[in-house]
Amino acid sequence: MIEAKGLSRSFGGREVVHDVDFRVGPGEVVGFLGPNGAGKTTTIRMLLGLLRPDRGSADVSRPVGYLPEQFAGYDGMSVRGYLRFMARMKQPPSNEVDAAMARAGVADLARRPLARLSKGQRQRVGLAQALLGSPPAFVLDEPMQGLDPKQVVDARHVVQSLAHEGGAAVLLSTHVLAEAAAICDRVVVIVKGRVVAEERPGDAADLEARFLRLVGQAELA
């Protein structure tokens, strides 16, 4: 379960996130949509405990599988070495490194140093890292970035299976509406730090029209 309860946060007197409320239940994939600078990353950081909210609180089942927007590991380490390290860091330590590599599609890269991975490969290692320990909750920040179309399809399957088969709560931030339409059970739209809508995505074209309307309204307000 992932729950934001009235999260607010200011930076230098400017409120970036205002009273954000939403909930992602087990077995649910929720898209977190918003234009750039809407407060998505700030909200995510508060959910993960990386940033202190000014008001409100976050309730996230632990451990949480987290994939940051710019995934970074350690250049010198091999893929397997890195995943082993992260597996030991997690609570409880897991020994499903190979399974996670297979699921994220990086099994053939096990010995390669992270420094020599392409952006897509790197992103998949990030995903594998998030999968470690079969967490009950996932926060994935732009997980499809840098993936080629085939990999995107694979990744979508992985994400959906996490919720629908694994029963995990998945929050997936993205600015690609088609992606949200394809895999999310619900979307939360955030504009200028406020949640302006929380609804079913419907089909992609429909979602796009509604999203633009919502953003436009919010910008005018």
Partner: peptide, 13 residues
């Protein structure tokens, strides 16, 4: 700088 610290904090280590 790279943000790998965030991943560890999110665990949290």
């Amino acid at each position: 700088r790279t943000g790998s610290l965030d991943l560890l904090h999110a665990v949290p280590v």
